[in-house]
Simulated assay, not measured.
Amino acid sequence: MRKVVTAPAAVLSTPGAEVDACDPGIVELAGELVAIMRASPGCVGLAAPQIGVSAQVFCVDVTGHPKAATTHGEFVLCNAKIIEASRWRPGREGCMSVPDLTGDVRRAARIVVEAVRPGTGEPVTITTDAFEARALQHEIDHCAGKLFLDRVAGAHAVYQRKVYL
Rank of each mutant, 00 (worst) to 15 (best):
L33R: 03
E114I: 12
E18H: 10
E18K: 15
E84S: 15
S40W: 07
L101I: 00
Y164V: 13
R87V: 00
Y159R: 14
V163W: 04
P99Y: 07
Y164C: 06
T71P: 08
A144P: 00
L33G: 07
A9W: 00
A108S: 11
A7L: 09
I111H: 02
A144Y: 01
C43V: 00
A80M: 04
V163R: 13
A133C: 12
K162W: 03
Q137G: 09
E28I: 09
A80N: 04
A115G: 07
W88Q: 11
A157V: 06
G52T: 11
H156K: 15
S86R: 07
P118R: 01
G52F: 10
G121A: 11
V98Y: 05
D104C: 05
V44F: 09
V19E: 14
S13L: 01
A48K: 06
L29G: 14
L29T: 14
T14P: 09
C22E: 12
I126Q: 08
I83K: 04
A130L: 00
L101V: 01
L149G: 02
A153H: 08
Y164T: 11
A55I: 15
R110C: 06
D141V: 04
R134I: 10
A7K: 04
C95D: 15
A155D: 15
R89M: 13
V4Q: 03
C22N: 10
K162E: 13
V116T: 14
P49N: 05
F131H: 08
P118N: 05
A30E: 04
V105R: 01
C143A: 02
I36G: 08
Q50K: 07
A55K: 15
G119D: 02
P118E: 01
G64A: 11
V116Y: 02
A10E: 14
A115D: 02
V158P: 04
L147I: 07
R38Q: 12
A47I: 03
A109P: 00
A144V: 00
